[in-house]
Design a protein around this nucleic acid. Structure first.
Lengths: 146, 146
DNA sequence: GTAAAATACCTGACTGTGTCCAAATTTTAA
DNA sequence: TTAAAATTTGGACACAGTCAGGTATTTTAC
């Protein structure tokens, strides 16, 4: 099992005013090792690292980390929530309709982009969530083979 | 109860090769009368119109209508699926984080836009789903009042 | 218009994500 | 070290949506 050093997970937690617990550190590591994973998958990874953890602890850690902006949660249609450690840069996602493969895409417009709708209807917009749906190279190939 | 004539719902069904049933017609009318509604809300509306309908029939009708492109389904994070009759023009949405109010936004770029990611990673993109998150005028006002 | 075939509908049980609660444990501050 | 605060735990629960079958309706062919 590969464990990347996530710029000192404990340090990250402290910076955000969160208590440092083995569970949270393991969750941070799991998200960093396998971005775009579901809570269930991450729970397995966490268990592989620290042995035992409750489902609720993982949900709670993911929830509070997402709230604090340490990680990001995305909820694509027809899929449970996915978590990734790349947060705060408002990047977007490309999802394969066939296999669910998810990859990051930088925003086409610039650094903090996409926050302008053609007509904002008086809303104060704070985030533009963009998901590109399509078919990944592998599934395209499989289709032409069939 | 206001019932708009939805360009002859029966005609719409026929055009898409679907059997014409009272349930489907009522579902189409409900979606047209109250866009951005959940399946539950639409089920109530359908019952108000034709008396009795099963949950599954509404789900099934919504599913097949969305598949055929007659209506559109959106699944915002933290909300059950919403349905709208404006389909096929790839418009986007503006959602209030506080009250959930959802409004349509035309795409800033043009007619069939947004299908270009900065790096498509070899994917064949068929849809760009854009959700602008923010606070609606009413909730902004309520906040400054408090 | 009628009968056969195809399609859709209904009842009821079930699954998968995610949340709520009170008790026990761990972390933090003094 | 000790007490207060925060976190974790286990179990039950809620919600949206799906599956399977038998029955009723619609469509098609005559």
């Amino acid at each position: 099992m590969i464990v990347l050093s996530v710029r000192e997970p404990a340090e990250l937690l402290r910076q955000h005013g969160l208590s440092i617990t083995a569970q949270r550190i393991a969750v941070l590591r799991a998200v960093a090792n396998r971005p775009h994973s579901t809570a269930d998958v991450l729970t397995e990874d966490v268990r592989a690292e620290i042995g035992v953890v409750s489902r609720q602890s993982v949900y709670s850690a993911l929830g509070i980390l997402a709230d604090k902006g340490v990680i990001r949660r995305i909820q694509p249609a027809g899929s449970p929530a996915l978590y990734e450690d790349r947060a705060g840069d408002n990047h977007h996602h490309l999802i394969c309709r066939t296999c669910g493969k998810t990859v990051d895409v930088d925003c086409a417009v610039g650094q903090r982009p996409c926050l302008t709708a053609s007509d904002d209807a008086g809303f104060q917009i704070d985030e533009a969530e963009v998901i590109y749906w399509g078919t990944c190279p592998k599934c395209l190939e499989a289709r032409t083979d069939g």
